[in-house]
């Protein structure tokens, strides 16, 4: 992987924050606001009751929520967001069974250059349909996605749905001839991370993050398998797949069970294993391979923390 690609660029996601339940309200646990100090300050002052604002809505409705355009919406920090140039947001609730562990919120700014996609897919009549998504400048891809559905096992969303596992896809668009892939290629989307979003009541939601080279969502993606069916009784996770702009492939080439393993509380991924809550870090030393920021999102399935997905920029 060419490190010259790693030059500073506009990023697709500008703000990532984690809201955790404290009594009957969601409070800010941590966030990475880049340079948007005023928006950060406004956020620190905020908290959300169930159903209130974007995080509260994801909590109350027990589903991921995409919000495009804050004016006149239920979004509570519109003024500060507008001042910071943020125009859209996605809230992803993290449930462990019926218990809300946290809500992860990502915020994006709109212009004609930022390309990428954050999509929420839901199951309807045996097919995955686009719930909503934020695409930045990838308008054609947005239109195509709105008119696409996935049966079980097909494509990134269908693959995630049927395997109940996060999946990391490479070379989006290369070799794919069907319309969405073709459009993905034209939009410059290269890497796709898909993950199941379990919610109470058994409805199916799949979240996909599609990253483009010019305005990447991340330059390093990791999928950690923490299921007891893979690790036994030990509270640990193994790095089953990953790709890094600096380090290249992050998986065991001999497929021989020699993956990297972290135990609970060991480093950032270990912290997510220990707490079961997403983690956002920015501007701290000690992140993997000198990246500036990272997000790690746990997935709780069948009564256990089953996977952690992480992305770094």
């Amino acid at each position: 992987m060419d490190t010259t690609l790693d030059t500073p660029a506009k990023t697709f996601i500008e703000v990532t924050e984690v809201w955790v339940p404290d009594g009957d309200r969601l409070k800010l646990a941590e966030g990475n606001y880049g340079g948007l100090e005023e928006f950060a300050a406004a956020s620190r002052r905020e908290s959300f009751a169930m159903g209130e604002g974007l995080p509260g809505k994801a909590w109350a409705e027990e589903r991921p929520v995409v919000l495009k355009g804050f004016d006149g919406s239920y979004f509570k920090r519109t003024e500060a967001a507008t001042a910071a140039g943020l125009t859209s947001a996605v809230a992803v609730p993290v449930f462990d069974g019926k218990t809300l562990k946290a809500v992860l919120v990502v915020l994006c700014g709109d212009d004609d250059e930022r390309t990428g996609a954050i999509e929420v897919w839901h199951e309807q009549d045996g097919l995955l349909m686009l719930d909503d998504g934020y695409y930045g400048a990838a308008k054609h891809f947005e239109w195509v996605s709105q008119h696409t559905h996935f049966p079980r096992g097909q494509g990134l969303p269908g693959g995630v749905w049927s395997s109940e596992t996060p999946i990391l896809m490479r070379d989006l668009g290369s070799g794919y001839r069907f319309i969405r892939a073709d459009s993905a290629a034209k939009a410059g989307l290269t890497t796709g991370l898909g993950l199941p979003i379990p919610v109470p009541g058994g409805k199916t939601f799949v979240l996909t993050l599609l990253s483009a080279k010019g305005t990447p969502i991340a330059r390093r993606f990791e999928i950690w398998d923490a299921r007891s069916a893979r690790n036994g009784a030990a509270n640990e996770a193994r790095l089953i797949d990953g790709i890094c702009a600096r380090e290249g492939a992050l998986w065991d080439p001999d497929n021989a069970g020699n993956e990297r393993v972290v135990k609970a509380w060991q480093g950032a991924i270990g912290r997510v294993l220990g707490t079961g809550v997403p983690l956002v870090e920015g501007g701290k030393p000690g992140l993997a391979n000198g990246y500036d920021s990272m997000v790690a999102l746990p997935i709780h399935l069948d009564g256990e923390l089953s996977h952690v997905v992480a992305w770094y920029l």
Partner: peptide, 12 residues
């Protein structure tokens, strides 16, 4: 083939 790895990654 599934798209979960790229050819570049599997070159030894």
């Amino acid at each position: 083939l599934s798209g979960e790895k790229s050819y570049a990654e599997i070159v030894t």
